[in-house]
């Protein structure tokens, strides 16, 4: 049975930033993928980047290096 694990989740206002995040993380070798914004964070329909919690420093570096806009970085237990 799948169990919840703590994830680092970045929520984006703009799809462009989300796709740029995916590209930046792939280039930097940061594990993760794009997911719908989890309802644990907001009941909305945008995109979020989800990585294992351990990738949090790398995520923040990709955000800064690429000058990406985002609405928040969250630690959330997700399946």
């Amino acid at each position: 049975m799948r169990r919840r694990q703590l994830k680092a989740v970045v929520v984006f206002a703009s799809t462009s930033d989300a796709i740029a995040m995916e590209s930046g993380c792939h280039a930097a070798g940061v594990a993760g993928r794009l997911i719908p914004v989890p309802t644990e964070i907001a009941a909305d329909c945008g995109l979020a980047w989800c990585s294992p919690e351990a990738e949090l420093p790398n995520i923040e570096r990709v955000l800064a290096d690429n000058g990406l806009g985002f609405t928040g970085v969250h630690l959330v237990a997700l399946y």
Binding site: S14, T15, C45, G46
Partner: peptide, 11 residues
């Protein structure tokens, strides 16, 4: 717009 669906104003 695909986001901010509960806002009355467009992004």
């Amino acid at each position: 717009s695909g986001s901010q669906s509960f806002e009355r104003k467009h992004p």
